[in-house]
């Protein structure tokens, strides 16, 4: 009995750590060897700040994902998948490490704080995500469209934005 008790005591914290590892105070998962953090929107900037202080000095990329057709996707335990996700890839040049930060963004309030203050290089990628997904990055210095024309309606990379076809007129049509 005593042996079992000891074994159970030893096992309990170990499995707990294995199930819910954290980094910078937020859940951390391992995707085939890639480290992924899952902060909430409130924690997002703080986590970026801690990552920057920890040596992740280069913001490789900011992009968004529309999970409308992929609601059952795996996120970290305890994190509820929302429609949108903002994915940030960071790079530590000295430590040769990568870190990915996935933040869930609800469809009814697609808004995330901008990382430009920490990473000036996030400016263009954030504009792209804003343009193509309609996610607004608050405090972004230049929240204009970047790839689509300024007067464009809608956000093309959203899943409910249908692929359209513009009829191409190869020959003159009679009556025109």
């Amino acid at each position: 009995m005593a042996d079992e008790g000891v074994a159970a005591d030893d096992a309990a914290p170990a499995t707990e750590i294995a199930e819910q590892p954290t980094m910078f105070g937020v859940p951390c998962t391992d995707e085939r060897g890639q480290q992924v953090l899952h902060p909430s929107r409130d924690e997002y900037l703080d986590v970026l700040g801690m990552a920057a202080a920890d040596g992740f000095e280069l913001c490789v990329d900011v992009c968004a994902v529309d999970g409308l057709t992929n609601r059952g996707r795996a996120v970290a335990p305890g994190i509820e998948p929302e429609r949108f996700e903002v994915v940030v890839n960071l790079l530590d040049l000295r430590g040769r490490r990568r870190l990915r930060i996935r933040t869930q963004v609800p469809a009814d309030d697609p808004q995330v704080p901008s990382a430009v203050g920490l990473y000036p290089g996030a400016e263009a990628p954030e504009r792209e995500a804003a343009d193509l997904f309609g996610i607004s990055f608050s405090d972004h210095p230049d929240p204009s469209r970047i790839l689509m024309p300024p007067d464009w309606d809608g956000h093309p990379l959203r899943k409910d934005y249908a692929i359209g076809a513009i009829p191409v007129q190869f020959k003159a049509v009679e009556g025109r």
Binding site: E57, E123, P141
Partner: peptide, 16 residues
């Protein structure tokens, strides 16, 4: 080299 100072080292006139 840290990114914490990244914003500070942008050119003063903000070139954009």
């Amino acid at each position: 080299m840290s990114t914490a100072t990244a914003a500070a080292i942008r050119r003063p006139a903000d070139a954009v």
